[in-house]
Every structure is written in C-alpha cells, then in structure tokens.
Simulated assay, not measured.
Amino acid sequence: MRTFGAVVQALREHAGLSREEFAERVRFSRHTVASVEQGRRMPDKVLVERAEHALGNTGALRKASRHLARHPGLARWFRAWARIEQTAISLCTYECRVVPGLLQTEAYARAVSLSVPPRPDPAVLEERIAARMARQALLSPDRTPPANFSFIVEQAVLERRTAGEEVTRELLDHLLGVVERCWNVEIQVMPLRQVVHAGLDGSLQLAETPENEWFGYSEGQQNGRLIGDAKELSMLQHIYAKMRSQALTPEDSLGLLKRMRGAL
C-alpha cells in the first residue's frame, strides 16, 4: 500500500497537480487522497479509475492495484510473509510453540486463538480460522508446480494436548493424513530429549521463490520480521539444516505420531 501510494503521489506531482487539485479531479476528499498516498488506506476502485483518467491513462495504477489485498484474518505483521508463501516453491518451517498453521485442524486453530488473551471478537475469530484453513490449499501436490514443504515440530508441542485429548486425537489423525496424501510434505519431530539443539533461538521459516530467491521469517509477541539479508539467511539455512539432522527422521517421526495417536 505504501508503494502504491508513492506511485500515485509521483504521478500526481509529475502531472503538476497539488493534492487539493488532484482530490478535486477524482472527487475524493484531500484527506482520503493523503491517506492513500501515505499508504494508510486501501484505495477504492472508483478512486483508482478516476486517478487513471486524471493522470494520463498510463494503466500503471490499474495494474498495480491488482496486487493490493486486505488479507482478512491474517495479522498485519504476517501479511508480507503470506504473499511470499503463496508462490513459494519450497518452504521450511520450524515451530516450538504451536503446530504450524499450515498443519492445524479447525478445532486446534480455534483453541490456539482462544488461549492467548485478549479473546478475539467472534467475527474476528471466524475470519482468522477461515484464513488459516484457506492457506492449507498451498500443501496440495496438485499445484502447478507443486511446492516442497519441510516441517520440524517440537514433540513437546504435540504432548501438550492443547484443548484436550479429542482435539489432539483429531490433530494427530490430520498430520498422519497429510503425510499420507501429500508426497511433497515432510514432517519431522524434534524429540523431547535432545542434548544439542540448533533451534534454541526460536521458531523460523524459510521460503524459496520461483526465481530461486530466499526469504526468512521469524515471529514473536505481536510482531513478525521478514528477512532478506543474504548473510542472515545463510545463517538461518545452516541452523535449519542442522535441526533436520537432529530431529527424528521422517520415518521415525511418522512412527512416533502413530504411537502418540494410539496412546490417546
């Protein structure tokens, strides 16, 4: 939105229009125009069309506006990563707090959302869960091209039995089903007892774009950080590779998941 707003402002200034003059031509208030130019407001479709006519019909604003979306149900700090995630050809995820969103069941997602205060408004909760479930379409091996997924999840996260045995039973069935259905998804469990653990600094994600460019993402309390620095990405890739060697193999992880499921 900030980039789109900067383009609007640049075209307006190139046309020699003040903000007041431009607002008059597009028949929106000066305040609305300022909010769009500063990236604080999603541009209305009508404003985009009127701005095109006012600024020379280049088509630039019309084309750029297609890449803007509100991403309902996603935290503001997660949205940039969600856009990268949508087109990634490989995605690596290490989680030590909860089961990754791409692997959650609806009941588990609901329990996680309700566990962390403040409790969300019912409408916000449903929007959040719907967005999380919709993201799971990314796992499909029928995508063209399909993406490769690697997940490392702490055993303690599964042993916690968030929301009780019934929800955990459904969650384990779901994880086993994902492994069975999706040849492009690999799940590894980091065992409870691991003397040397490369991931003690916390959860992380890595994604490779169709252009073979890598990005990273780390998340904390009410914030997330998109990582593009090559040196930092190299370090994170080394950490993730080390954790893959320290976690149970995919086969042993599958066996553990089955034993955990049988114990419930």
Rank of each mutant, 00 (worst) to 15 (best):
L226C: 02
E52Y: 04
V33E: 00
F22H: 06
Y108C: 05
E232C: 09
L226V: 02
P117C: 05
L17Y: 09
L74C: 04
Y240Q: 10
A64P: 02
S113A: 15
V116R: 13
M133V: 14
H71D: 00
A75S: 12
L206R: 09
G255S: 13
Q188M: 08
A207Q: 04
L236W: 06
G228Y: 00
L91D: 03
A10R: 11
T58E: 09
A207V: 09
G224P: 01
A163E: 12
P210S: 14
A123S: 15
R225Y: 05
E127H: 03
H174C: 07
L61N: 02
D252N: 13
S203W: 07
E154Q: 12
E180V: 09
R40W: 06
L233S: 08
Q246M: 11
L175D: 02
D121L: 10
N184S: 11
T168V: 07
V7M: 00
P122K: 13
G5M: 00
L68F: 01
T168L: 14
G220H: 07
L256Y: 02
L158W: 04
R193K: 14
A54N: 08
E211N: 03
R19H: 06
A131Y: 02
A130C: 03
L257R: 08
G228E: 00
F215C: 06
C182I: 03
L55R: 08
E85Q: 06
L103D: 08
F28R: 02
V46K: 15
F149E: 11
Q194W: 10
R244W: 03
G16A: 13
G101A: 12
P146I: 10
A82P: 00
R132H: 07
R19W: 01
E52T: 06
R225G: 01
H238E: 10
H14Y: 02
E49W: 02
E219Q: 11
V185H: 05
V153W: 07
S253I: 03
L200W: 07
H238D: 13
L139M: 13
S234L: 14
A241R: 13
E37W: 00
S245T: 14
A263W: 07
P120A: 05
C92N: 12
R25N: 03
N212Y: 08
R25W: 03
G224Y: 07
A34F: 05
A60L: 12
L192G: 12
R261F: 04
T162Y: 05
S150F: 08
H238V: 13
H174Q: 14
S65E: 00
D142T: 14
R97V: 14
L172I: 11
V167M: 08
R50M: 04
L91I: 10
P146N: 09
G224W: 08
A54M: 04
R259G: 07
A82T: 00
F151Y: 14
E213V: 11
S115G: 11
P145G: 05
F149S: 09
P146K: 05
H14D: 11
E251Q: 13
A82I: 11
Y240A: 06
E21S: 15
E24G: 06
R97S: 15
E52H: 11
I187K: 12
H53F: 01
R66K: 12
F78E: 02
E180D: 15
L74W: 08
V46E: 08
E180Y: 03
R143G: 03
E170S: 10
A23E: 10
L172T: 09
M260I: 06
A88H: 07
A107S: 15
N212C: 11
